[in-house]
Design a protein around this nucleic acid. Sequence first.
DNA 1: ATATTTACCTATTGACTTAGTAGGTAATTA
DNA 2: TAATTACCTACTAAGTCAATAGGTAAATAT
Lengths: 133, 133
Amino acid sequence: MISTKGRYALRVMIDLAEHAEQEYIPLKDVAARQDISKKYLEIIVRDLVNGGLVAGVSGKGGGYKLLREPEEYNVGEILEKTEGTLSSVACLSCDTAPCPRKDECKTLPLWSEYDQMTHDFFYGKTLRDLMEN
Amino acid sequence: MISTKGRYALRVMIDLAEHAEQEYIPLKDVAARQDISKKYLEIIVRDLVNGGLVAGVSGKGGGYKLLREPEEYNVGEILEKTEGTLSSVACLSCDTAPCPRKDECKTLPLWSEYDQMTHDFFYGKTLRDLMEN
DNA sequence: ATATTTACCTATTGACTTAGTAGGTAATTA
DNA sequence: TAATTACCTACTAAGTCAATAGGTAAATAT
């Protein structure tokens, strides 16, 4: 399951893209428009900043802004920065020890194929695609 | 993420299919071959019994057996009986209240499309397909 | 200078889920 | 009657989720 972190992250990115006429957009405004707790969004936006997807500037007139055009972001990278991984099973997640049964497992190819399909799906959609919905 | 319940359920189903020459297969044997706690498998197999996917018989000589041929099971139904839902987001899971923002949400179509793709993927694979890996 | 506004930081929490374990009873067969 | 098996209820330790709380640092407006 995609958690609120990933889902809210996409909504934040869309919101920033839709208000790009302002140089910097305060998180307060995003939180109000999206009806999400600003405190919680801080956690999410930090992942986006650390991941190099958005930039933040403190102080009056500050806020966040996108670093690229909406069509230059893909949905997959936004989700991965906030969710950690898009992998469907622990056996294929990079931060777990390799499964001792991986060579004989009859189900592993299923998960591999599914993960590949998932990756292609989310990396094939751009932020611009979402905005046009 | 697909949890161990769904993953183990598939391995149990494959194991039962591979040993179908015995009428009933004791869970003890499945647990030993698959190297999974028998106690934990009991929980998983109960979901499969309640879901009408396998049948169990108590007593000596008892155990579990498939009710259909492997090609007549699809992976999706096995996962849904044990995981509860295959939906990627709470907003589209049937047992949650509909999201108040669903009409304006720019991301909902993404999750719908992804869930549809996921459904088609898992419902398009049979138990037999897994055995042939 | 000072007040205001904003990002950015660490820590905490209650509810829930996950991945089992424990200890039985009921059913069936040898 | 003994052995074997499914089936049942309850419990639990660890982890995750979805936030909240309470600050400090940075930048600008007055």
